[in-house]
Amino acid sequence: MDFLRAASLDDALATKAQRPDIAPIAGGTDLMVGINFDHIRPSGLLDLTSVPELTEWSESGDVVRVGAGVPYARIISELGERLPGLAMAARTVASPQIRNRGTVGGNLATASPSGDAHPALLACDAEVELASTRGTRRMPVTEFFTGVKRNAAEPDELITAVHLPRATGPQQFAKVGTRNAMVISVCAFSVALHPDRAAVGTGFGSAAPTPRRAVEAEQFLSGELTSRGMWADPRPLPDTVVERFGELVAAACAPIDDVRGTASYRRHALGVLARRTVRWTWDEYSIGRQTCA
C-alpha cells in the first residue's frame, strides 16, 4: 500500500488513470472504517483533501456547483439559503466531527441506499460531474446509482462536483432513526418545490436498492397544484392531496427487512415522512417560513 497526495485536479486524474484501483480518500469517514477493521485493503490511497478544485463551491447563473470535497459542515454554514434541502440533509449526517470531514463526493462514491445526500440531490435534479484524463462529463443523479453501493463512474474517473439549481422554493429533508445524531436512516425523504417551472421534486433513501425519485407522486402533486391554480394563488393543501401524495411515495419504494427496520415499517414511515414534509414545504410556500428550535 502507498499513500499519494494530489496537489491539483490534473495530478489526481493522472494518478487515477495510471492506477484505477487506487482508493481516493476525502473525509475518510467511510473508507477508514473499512481499513481500520481490515475489511478493505486498497493498493494505495490518493488524498484528495489538498486538491483546491474539489474543495470549493461556486455559482454561475442559477446553478450552484459544489465541489465533491466540500465537507458537510460547510454546506450547512455556507449553502443553507441556496441549497436548503441538501443543507438539511447534511445536518442530519452523523455528528459534528464527521460533518467536518465527510463529503458529498464520498457519499456518492459509496452510493449506499442510505446516503443522506442522495434524496436531496434527487429532489433537485442534481447532476454529478465526473472527470478523468479523457475529459469531464455530467450526468443526472438519477442515472448515477446503478445498484446497491454501485455507481456509474468509470474506474479512471473521479467525482469532481455536483451541480444543483439554486432553490426557487421551499425544500425539506427528513429521516427516521433511533436518535437525531449518528443515525443511518431507516428511511429518508426529501421534497422540493420548484415554482419557477411548476414542478415538484422528490427523493428517498433506505427504501430500495438505490436512492430513487417517486416520479408518480411528483407528477400527481405538480398536476394538482397546476390544475387548481395554486402555484400563483397558494391555498391550504387539501388533505386528500396530501394523503394521495403519501400513498404514491410509499408505492414507489421497494424496501427490505434488515436490522434497522422491516420492509412494511419502512413503507409506512416513508409515507408519513412524505405527508409531513410536503405539508412543511407547502406551508412555507403559502404562508412563509416557520422557524423552530
Partner: peptide
C-alpha cells in the same frame, strides 16, 4: 479520539495519518 486538525475538530480515527 477527537482532535483539532487545522483548527477543525475531527475524529482522528477517521483521518489517514498521511492526510
Amino acid at each position: 479520539c477527537t482532535v483539532y486538525l487545522d483548527d477543525v475538530p475531527v475524529c482522528s480515527c477517521m483521518v489517514a495519518a498521511g492526510q
